[in-house]
């Protein structure tokens, strides 16, 4: 079975930290950065568990601010 690997790139400055992508992710990849904030003062999302990402793009679909780009490769 081909293994699929994905990656998420977050536009940290556009992110408003709504966490909808965190909820939408089926593999527990994303989390809110609890420490840093962007220029607007929002905590932004990052790949907490990058190895889990399957590139399904669910995070991207539900992101209201278009901050998420998703990449996927078949291994």
């Amino acid at each position: 079975m081909a293994k699929i690997k994905g990656a998420v790139v977050v536009n940290e400055e556009r992110c408003k930290g709504c966490e909808l992508c965190v909820v939408a992710c089926p593999s527990d990849v994303l989390a809110l950065n609890g420490k840093d904030v962007n220029n607007k003062g929002y905590h932004f999302v990052y790949m907490k568990n990058p190895d889990n990402c399957i590139g399904c793009a669910s995070c991207g679909y539900v992101c209201p601010d278009g901050c998420i780009a998703v990449y996927k490769v078949k291994l």
Binding site: G6, N11, E13, R14, K16, G17, C18, E19, L20, K40, Y42, G55, A57, G60, Y61, P64, D65, G66, C67, I68, A69, V70, Y71, K72, V73
Partner: peptide
């Protein structure tokens, strides 16, 4: 490898909507 991105016709202006709108 890109499978999802911000739509081309959506520009870079930051949207004024509340988080999660």
């Amino acid at each position: 490898n890109l499978v999802y991105d911000k739509p081309r016709l959506m520009n870079d202006n930051p949207m004024h909507y509340c988080p999660g709108c």
